Amino acid sequence: MRIDVHTHFYPSGYLAEIRRHSDHASVTVDDAGQLVLHYAGDYNVLAPAHHSVEARLADMDAAGIDLSVMSLTTPGVHVERPERGVTLAKLVNDEYAELQRQYPERFRFFATLPLQAPDEAAKELERAVRQLGLAGAMIFSNVNGEPVDRPRFWPIYEAAEALGAPIVVHPTAPAFAEYLSEYRLVALLGFAYDTTMVAVRMVLGGVLDRFPGLRLIQTHLGGVLPYLAERVQRGYAVYPELKGKLQRTPIEYFREMYLDTVLFDPDCLKLGLAFAGEDRLLLGSDHPHQVGDLFKAVRVIKELPVERTVKEKILSGNARRLLKIETAAA
């Protein structure tokens, strides 16, 4: 079985609302007739599988993906005014729940949360998991420039821990995005920075001491966390501002995080596997973004020089355990 945990879908109701009105996003049509969703610092070209169930299923079948665990992706609803964000989050999650009901063997979803209103986000997370049956939630690495380790966001983590609901941490444009406006550097470099930054801040900021049962999924193989974790560990041991502030050393927290495999270089994946362990890697494709690749995501795991049992864990076993997925295919 193959379960893709990093793949994105825009519900039709959300796109209609953004086209009708948004404070910070817009939808246009390019010369090729494709929808383009613009937001501060970047844009997404919408492939058919971004918003068509039929196209999504066709792509999954072609690549041999049994089940997709989808999320909204950028720009998210947190870029809107708080009351608008709450309304959009409920609209998205209700549509996700309906699709999950219609296609229980093929689709699961991570809830969208109005992160600019953390108390409301915690309530929506509880509704999404308890009432709608969604798999957990996705948050972003910053909320309109504010790091998400800050205490005002802690109600979300308290709710997630109580629910046993995993939280996917997805990058968005970093606070210094204006310096990355050329060459698509927000997507190419800025996302990797923000992914790494949020993983380190969640540890050094004490979030995982406060909520030890919180389960985090870091996207894009943790950014450059496997490469830089030793430096963070070393700094924690010598900098007086950090030393002794945590219950454990940083590396212990990092290695409890889950990493998805959205880096398709086999050497990078071998590093990620050595860093996180075979029980902490989850198949991801970033489909259907331009920079995603549904076929390569599967192929690179199948070709890794590791035991078949390890590949099976990455392709589906870890996701099934973490997300409590039971299907006929499983």
Results as ranks from 00 to 15, higher is better:
Met1Gly: 03
His8Leu: 11
Phe9Ala: 06
Pro11Glu: 06
Ile18Thr: 13
Asp23Gln: 14
Ser26Cys: 12
Val29Met: 02
Ala32Tyr: 00
Leu46Tyr: 10
Ala47Asp: 15
Ala49Glu: 15
Val53Ser: 12
Leu57Met: 15
Met70Pro: 02
Ser71Ala: 14
Thr73Glu: 09
Pro75His: 14
Val79Lys: 03
Glu80Ile: 03
Arg81Pro: 02
Glu83Ala: 09
Ala89Glu: 00
Glu124Gln: 10
Glu126Ile: 06
Ala128Trp: 08
Ser141Asn: 02
Pro151Trp: 05
Pro155Ile: 07
Ala159Glu: 09
Gly164Trp: 15
Val169Ala: 10
Ala173Val: 13
Pro174Arg: 04
Tyr179Lys: 15
Leu180Asn: 02
Ala199Gln: 03
Met202Thr: 00
Gly222Ile: 09
Pro226Ser: 06
Arg234Ile: 00
Tyr236Gly: 08
Val238Lys: 08
Tyr239Met: 14
Glu241Ile: 03
Leu242Thr: 02
Leu242Asn: 03
Lys245His: 09
Leu246Asn: 03
Gln247Thr: 12
Arg255Glu: 09
Arg255Asp: 06
Glu256Ile: 10
Lys270Tyr: 14
Asp286Gln: 15
His287Ile: 06
Pro288His: 05
Val291Pro: 02
Asp293Tyr: 01
Ile301Phe: 05
Leu304Lys: 06
Pro305Arg: 04
Thr309Phe: 07
Ala329Asn: 05
